[in-house]
Design a binder for these strands. Sequence first.
DNA 1: GATGAATGAGTGTTCATTCAT
DNA 2: CATGAATGAACACTCATTCAT
Lengths: 209, 209, 209, 209
Amino acid sequence: MQPNPGSSELTFTEAARRKQIVAAAIETIAELGYAKASFVQIAKRAGLSSPGLISYHFANKDDLIEQVVAEIYGAGGAVITMHNEGAVSAWQGLRGYLEGSVAYYDSHRTYMRALVHILQGHPDALGRWVGANNVAELDAVEELLVRGQRAGEFREFDTRTVALIIRQMLSGTLQHLLTRPDVDLTDYTHELVAMCEHALVAPEGKTND
Amino acid sequence: MQPNPGSSELTFTEAARRKQIVAAAIETIAELGYAKASFVQIAKRAGLSSPGLISYHFANKDDLIEQVVAEIYGAGGAVITMHNEGAVSAWQGLRGYLEGSVAYYDSHRTYMRALVHILQGHPDALGRWVGANNVAELDAVEELLVRGQRAGEFREFDTRTVALIIRQMLSGTLQHLLTRPDVDLTDYTHELVAMCEHALVAPEGKTND
Amino acid sequence: MQPNPGSSELTFTEAARRKQIVAAAIETIAELGYAKASFVQIAKRAGLSSPGLISYHFANKDDLIEQVVAEIYGAGGAVITMHNEGAVSAWQGLRGYLEGSVAYYDSHRTYMRALVHILQGHPDALGRWVGANNVAELDAVEELLVRGQRAGEFREFDTRTVALIIRQMLSGTLQHLLTRPDVDLTDYTHELVAMCEHALVAPEGKTND
Amino acid sequence: MQPNPGSSELTFTEAARRKQIVAAAIETIAELGYAKASFVQIAKRAGLSSPGLISYHFANKDDLIEQVVAEIYGAGGAVITMHNEGAVSAWQGLRGYLEGSVAYYDSHRTYMRALVHILQGHPDALGRWVGANNVAELDAVEELLVRGQRAGEFREFDTRTVALIIRQMLSGTLQHLLTRPDVDLTDYTHELVAMCEHALVAPEGKTND
DNA sequence: GATGAATGAGTGTTCATTCAT
DNA sequence: CATGAATGAACACTCATTCAT
């Protein structure tokens, strides 16, 4: 039976167990991929006596995955806002976002790998858990782009579409980072930033555009 | 008995059945994702009496998937070469590649969706069936970039890394296209091409465009 | 449909096909064992286009195996009688039977291996096809033993039981020969014959050997 | 989850279930033979709800069979050593071994039948589980023969080969016992022992028997 | 006579989930 | 709270056999 049915309060031990299981699930998914991350494997990595314990603490496999996604996003929620603050130019803000994101991916490879695997393996992880976060991040990027256009920093383009493309470039970077763990990120990030700078920043003469 | 072991000749009916099953597999994978595309589901969509019939015509599930990938790549093999020919400028070549790719993705959504699902779901589809094609395509892009740099069309950058990023942008486009089937591709492609143009074409080189 | 239902006459081609299939079955069973000797494997070795052809020529798998056993016994039926003739002593007759059997096993390894595999793998091959042959052979051995006892060559013993034990020794020899193909049969047979001689021949009877 | 991976400690119930399944497996194999002893049949005889439960308690079918063989050998491990002790003559030791073995076969017919079926049906049961035991038993017999020769009890012969033949005689006895359950073992054993005595014991050595 | 395609029951094994203790 | 045992559906794959052509 689900503990505390209908209640949102969790015992201390209960909360600890859930965290432990979520952590083991992240580790397992990152290591084996979503398809092979069975309860048995997760329980083994969590040092649990039985996969039944996972079912005891989580209503569903989907419920567990939902918590996993929440944990991953919770750990990285500060990323985009962090670099968006301060009285810097829009381009500096965007550059910070790009570099910050890549650095974050680099330093949270296990989490990111798990997230990517979930997105790839779960039928509709995107729609149910990840989509909203993506939209929020996309909004933040677009806001930056709008600010840059208003300030004359950026050339004219459709901000929503370009925000989307920038997000996709970062997704591509993450994929590449996870696939080729030995990639030289400094060089890679340098080219990425350069491409975006040339792609978006308006030439000097355009200031009054 | 496995039909025609070690031979490349296939009966007419045999070839037809294989095509039919491959088609049903593509359809099923595109619809349900790789994980849930079991022989039972594929057989159901192919109108077969039993999943055993698939095992009769294909040695393995991997064998079937290999044929699926072959069919998908076979149908689109002309894409990259098509746009690389002609005495056009490097940028025109690249623009053609970008627009051609997007148009191809658009017109082969089911195939592309299946391919993406296989890449995401199969443990090492990338290494066994897709990797080589990707490298070839990457090489073609890089060659274009090198040509453009030599001709002074393109600014200086690391051609390999930028080729990679361009491929990733297209991957992102495909993902987006499959996720949001109602996207306005004309606008999207326009922005994508514009971004790449600004990102790569050298300022003085724009005159002879 | 079974060809020539209710008739015992076989077409020439029909008979040839059956022989061919039986031969392939023997080869297959000897090589793979009974359990893995499927129609597919047999058809492959016989160069047949389909396992269905076997079902066409034989009513059953059991029917095929029955013919296989018949072929094997038919090829070796002369063995025991061959050495039982001539006005030799009983012991010489027995010795000839022992040595002849071992030699026969040695020169018909594939047939013998197939027969052993069938006996081991088929639920009741013994009762249905092999038992009668064994009894016949056993009778022949016993007859020899009785003759020897009457002539005073052999000591007193229960002839049926000892005949059985002698048969079992030969079975053991066959097993050993098939398991360890590199065994030195000369030495082995020498010891086997010596054991039987000491075991059966009456002390005073040795003089006229 | 596979219970207690890598540990030798078993829960009480777990151990009981394993024993129960092993027992049912022995029963099933003895009754149906190895080929037809599927998990479904074993589960049916064990009163289990599903064949999956067997996979839950044993890693493999091979794992189960290994435990079955272990159980069978474990139950009869004392046989050969039992009769080899005491300051008796080599011949008395051998006679004890023969009689003891036959008596053991007689009193453990189901176990022996299962063992024989496994040896006949499993591709390499001999090499993996049984071979070592056979060699050990063969060594023990040979040791006895060597002792007897040194003491002048036995005539000259190649001890290895004769040990092998003696083992084969016992195998033959077992086969016969399982095939004809109504055999008069007293008579049979008497003849077997007599044959071996005449075959091996040196004429002059009989005096101090 | 022969072919190749098809059938459907059967195999061992994995899995999320349930539940008595 | 936690355990370990159990469940039953699902999986890919093999097999002897059937049958239209």
